[in-house]
Design a protein around this nucleic acid. Sequence first.
DNA 1: CTTTTTATAGTCGTACTGACTATTACTCGT
DNA 2: ACGAGTAATAGTCAGTACGACTATAAAAAG
Lengths: 247, 247
Amino acid sequence: MRARGGLAPEDNDKYAFEPFAVTVDLAVLTVRAGELEVLLVERGQEPYAGRWALPGGFVLPKESAETAARRVLAVETGIPDLSRLHLEQLRTYSEPDRDPRMRVVSVAFAALLPDPPEPHGGGDAAQARWLPYGSVGPLAFDHVRILADAHERVGAKLEYTCLATSFCPPEFTLGELQRVYETVWGAVLDRPNFRRKVLATPGFVAPVPGAARLTGGRGKPAALYRAGGATALQPPLLRPPSEGRPS
Amino acid sequence: MRARGGLAPEDNDKYAFEPFAVTVDLAVLTVRAGELEVLLVERGQEPYAGRWALPGGFVLPKESAETAARRVLAVETGIPDLSRLHLEQLRTYSEPDRDPRMRVVSVAFAALLPDPPEPHGGGDAAQARWLPYGSVGPLAFDHVRILADAHERVGAKLEYTCLATSFCPPEFTLGELQRVYETVWGAVLDRPNFRRKVLATPGFVAPVPGAARLTGGRGKPAALYRAGGATALQPPLLRPPSEGRPS
DNA sequence: CTTTTTATAGTCGTACTGACTATTACTCGT
DNA sequence: ACGAGTAATAGTCAGTACGACTATAAAAAG
């Protein structure tokens, strides 16, 4: 490569760059029945044929990575309603050997979907499925690491943002909200304290005014809430201390 | 583009992808004399000739983005000692029109350097300089946004990590450490409270054992400290509440 | 109608923080 | 030599938040 002399990359007359393939990979998480689940697709071709992988695809010439992520999710998994999808850039994985065949730089996203809809593979023989987070085996490429990074990021964001409501349907009980925290964190929280904290945070949740009660099964019916306008949680709602969590 | 059928991007036999240029851009921050400064280079060519821009460059075929970032910083600014550089991936900017000439996807990094060394432009006519953060005018491309994102990220990380020591020389006083916080946050902190908080956090700082005093000017000499082993700050050290800060 | 289950209400002690005041140990100007 | 100024360090005090509880209410299941 020619010496570039302290200029921004776009300066080089000769455009002495190596073209890369740019893709997006999505770690889509949901909570169903108190379990954390991941949306995976089965690979039909080598390498890693038969392995599960994160949904992903190429970024098209006129797309941003964010646009590509939404398109890929719609096309590959056939999920119809992406209006309540929370999509957030995670980081970019660019190790030279992450794809054995060619140079692929992948912009990874963490995504959350409430009320997990049933996916269907988008065309060929590939299938798309929700799999429990704890039971994913080895994935294709570096997708295990991407998935772990996404899990860690989401867990951390639950602490200091109101993101948890993105896992919930439009109206939810505080018990459901608490189960989101417990499922993502893999920890048990004290119910009265959780309740006190959520209700004391202005704008986290807002009570549904009307006949604001609903019963799903046993026990006393719970009041219904919607997501409030707030996005930040101040002070944060910290997960109980545990070992082996990266800082 | 051919229908891809729910497979990972690498599956397509025809490799129906558009090649992109992949670059890195670096927002390198430092604190000097109580002021936040950014490392910028002056562009010599169109577009944005004469404008200041973040240092950046192409990712080479056998490099990861992280490797490229370190190389670019060494080559473009001639800074000799990068051993104490804190480098952290910020996010990837991929809007299709961010470079008027071609499709460029840029992986942006936030970086911190203590004891700002004098940079020298790396070859051509370009110059590299530290400029006060508050006085940067319009930058080339979307670099203003990248810089603002880096600033916000660093400010947020000061709250819940021990990152502030990355702005300090190997041995520093608590006053210097406090000035890092005040400079990045643009806020004034109470000295006794700051001191109490820092010393109460195990592993944040460790006193220098020997003749642990040094005087830089007026006032009572301060004890010297080194960075401790901890990386996380628990509970966090929150910036004083202010308006207009994104969540 | 008792047990089980879940939601809700409230208590108590500790830890942390913001807002202070006081004291010590230097330098500088005169 | 001495007082003013400056910065570091020590400590107080009240309010808030949080962890660990106990207690009560309202439903379903047996």
